[in-house]
Amino acid sequence: MDLMSRALVASLTALTLLSPAAIAGPKGEVRLLAYEGYADPSWVEEFEKQTGITVKVTYVGGVDEQIAKMKASNGKDYDVVTIDTASLKAYADQKLIAPIDTAKLTSAGNLLPEFKDMSNATLDGAIYGVPWAWGSLGMVYDKKTFPTTPESWEVLWDPTYKGKVISLDDANNAINFGAIVLGIKDPFHLTDAQFAQVKDKLIALKRNLLTYFAGFDEGTTIWSENDVVLMFSMGELAAVNLQKKGFDVGYTIPKEGAVGWLDNLSVSAGTPNPDAAYAWMNFVLQKKIGADMAKKFGYGSTTDVAQGMDYAGRLIWAQNPEDYTRRQAIWNEVKAAE
């Protein structure tokens, strides 16, 4: 039931109002807008006990859904929101998030050296987010079908596996992915000709797909209920979840590379209780929480060196793309194609 309700919340919060009305604790409440794995019940429990602040979590399944939720209330419905580096600018431009008050960020010292300067989250001199978790959009493959790890993304286009491939439904990342497979150097700033190439490549992929999916749980559910052997995934968690369910799957970053993402903790511009927001951020930026997150969900942590995640060097860190509106229009074209 827990898995079910989480899947529902994650993929379709737009339609449901499942989140229970939380009762605020003596020190108020902190409302998180987060991806799965960013507010483990054990951390929430410890945090609530330690601070007296109640935690209310709303899970989202994707970037699009998250910004729509923030925009709907100009951030007033949430206190802390996790935003990937590539989208930070959009949030900052829309004034949905406030600059980080480094004086209140007492646990900044816990950050690993490569994340300490927060350069990924700095816009016009102001820091808009604190690096929190990273990962990649890699390939999940069925180990029985592939005794040796597939080397190239091209296997997803292989007609042998027609109808056994699933792919992430996310306009921006799908286009990044297409560009990376085509070997385009800068997948975040495409020319007209490159856009046309990527569109054709993604339409070709579509013909090999069983379906698109949105959110980790949807990907896992579809994998477990159907005969799927390959997935352009939303991240390491997809493989972790499937392994937990007993599926023999592997996770790999093929030779073309993959998009890497870095999620930052940001403070909503509409928060009435910034102290509670910083209290949560300081709490989760502890080394032990980072290690626990890496262990439980397979995300890379910014406070603890992730084990087994040796491929960071081959990732292409996500940047703000040239034009979201255009990417969405092209993605709609791909999805409407016969």
Binding site: A14, G62, V63, D64, E65, I67, A68, K71, S87, A90, Q94, D169, A171, N172, K206, R207, L209, L210, T211, Y212, Y324, T325, R327, Q328, A329, W331, N332, K335, A336
Partner: peptide, 23 residues
């Protein structure tokens, strides 16, 4: 979208897609 696979793209979906990052 949820049951239609690659054919699950409908008009409501296009409307919905304009309110995400496309803004």
């Amino acid at each position: 979208q949820m049951v239609g696979g690659i054919q699950g793209f409908t008009f409501g979906r296009i409307v919905f897609s304009q309110f995400g990052l496309a803004l």
